[in-house]
């Protein structure tokens, strides 16, 4: 089964829950947010949410930040 995770195509064995996916990626449930096809999942639904072929999954976490940085695509070369 192919799904898109953070912009890249990955192949996994079905059935695959969000919890199983996070385990496979060595990620801790309490440190991430998961969006499936633009819908943000509640953490309590991770164990029961079954991913489908072609799903687009975004896994996000907190990183260092304080002040907004320029968009890396365009802003990073300016004034440098």
């Amino acid at each position: 089964m192919k799904i898109i995770v953070n912009g890249e195509e990955h192949t996994y064995h079905a059935p695959l829950t969000v919890t199983t996916l996070l385990q496979a990626l060595n990620l801790r449930t309490e440190q991430v947010a998961v969006e499936v096809n633009l819908k943000i999942l509640d953490r309590s639904n991770f164990p029961t949410w079954i991913l489908q072929e072609g799903d687009t999954v975004e896994i996000l976490s907190f990183i260092g930040g304080g002040s907004p940085q320029p968009r890396p695509s365009r802003g990073s070369t300016r004034n440098e």
Partner: peptide, 13 residues
Amino acid sequence: TVAVRRVNITDKN
């Protein structure tokens, strides 16, 4: 304060 970004899924460590 922290920012919210995609996790690095290629580096599992």
